[in-house]
């Protein structure tokens, strides 16, 4: 069988020198279950994420992949099992939740920028109010990250004046301004036009090259192959299969995974 080659849309060599996975555990999930009413969304999830890992979570819609990563910063509450993020267990204790949230950045499908604030204010708000960084310093940090996502010139505009791709890059910069140790991406490119997907993926790859711990729910299999060190396939609330990308795409084990891959890769 010929090796699957996926289109990444990335036309440069990826610098892997900083992409090292350490032994330290960033996220530890054990026997975690979640229900929406009667519906069992997540079943006995066990998962360990080490610092520096780049994980892509994929699966059909309704498989619970978004819910899984939303549990990690407790946008969704789990009902049994344990989630430990960066040494803090997620319980109903609000202090722990706020501590975890300030360490974990999140990028949403629909950007969720604050439309009443300028781009710069979007980026400085949380550092100023949560981290208590002085305004001047927060603005410098914000400009640094806006330059990184290549839109410093938009700093004084409002989100409504930017294109979708630009808004998503601002959303990434906004998360980075909190200097998170872990980044969660919830289908970051699903709401974008094809030509804008590339600019967002570019930013994400850049982030991976810097050694950020990332969990991405995405259907961009090219991205998965290029930067992920592990791909997790979910179906009906369970982790069906996980493997390093090369093995995952070329040698899927379960029938469900094979079916999914054949549909999504469009062969």
């Amino acid at each position: 069988m010929a090796e699957v080659q996926l289109e990444t849309g990335i036309d440069r060599e990826i610098d892997r020198s900083n992409m090292q996975v350490s032994d330290e555990i960033a996220i530890q999930i054990t026997r975690m279950n979640k229900w929406f009413g009667q519906f069992h969304v997540l079943r006995d999830i066990d998962m360990t994420v080490h610092n520096g890992e780049r994980i892509v979570v994929c699966g059909p819609s309704g498989s619970g992949k978004s819910t899984l990563i939303r549990c990690i910063n407790r946008l969704e509450e789990h009902q049994s099992g344990q989630i430990i993020v960066d040494g803090t267990e997620l319980t109903s204790d609000l202090k722990n939740i706020d501590r975890v949230r300030s360490e974990v950045g999140m990028v949403f499908q629909h950007f969720n920028l604050f439309p009443h604030l300028t781009i710069l204010e979007n980026c400085t708000l949380a550092p100023i109010w949560v981290r208590k960084v002085p305004r001047r310093e927060a603005e410098e940090t914000a400009m640094h990250f806006l330059e990184k996502v290549k839109i410093p010139e938009q700093a004084n505009k409002y989100p409504g004046q930017l294109s979708g791709g630009q808004q998503q890059r601002v959303a990434i910069a906004r998360s980075l301004c909190m200097r998170p140790r872990i980044m969660l991406f919830d289908e970051p490119t699903s709401a974008l036009d094809p030509e804008m997907i590339k600019e967002v993926l570019d930013t994400m790859i850049q982030l991976a090259e810097e050694g950020m711990t990332m969990l991405c729910v995405t259907h961009e299999m090219g991205f998965a192959q290029a930067v992920a060190n592990r791909v997790i396939f979910m179906d009906q609330g369970q982790i069906v299969e996980q493997n390093e990308p090369r093995e995952f795409f070329n040698n899927p084990q379960s029938d469900r995974t094979k079916l999914f891959l054949s549909q999504i890769l469009g062969h």
Binding site: R99, R101, G105, H110, F111, N112, L125, M178
Partner: peptide, 13 residues
């Protein structure tokens, strides 16, 4: 939109 609440939560506010 619910996303505004979620974004605020996710930033640790």
């Amino acid at each position: 939109p619910r996303g505004q609440y979620e974004a605020a939560d996710a930033l640790g506010l």
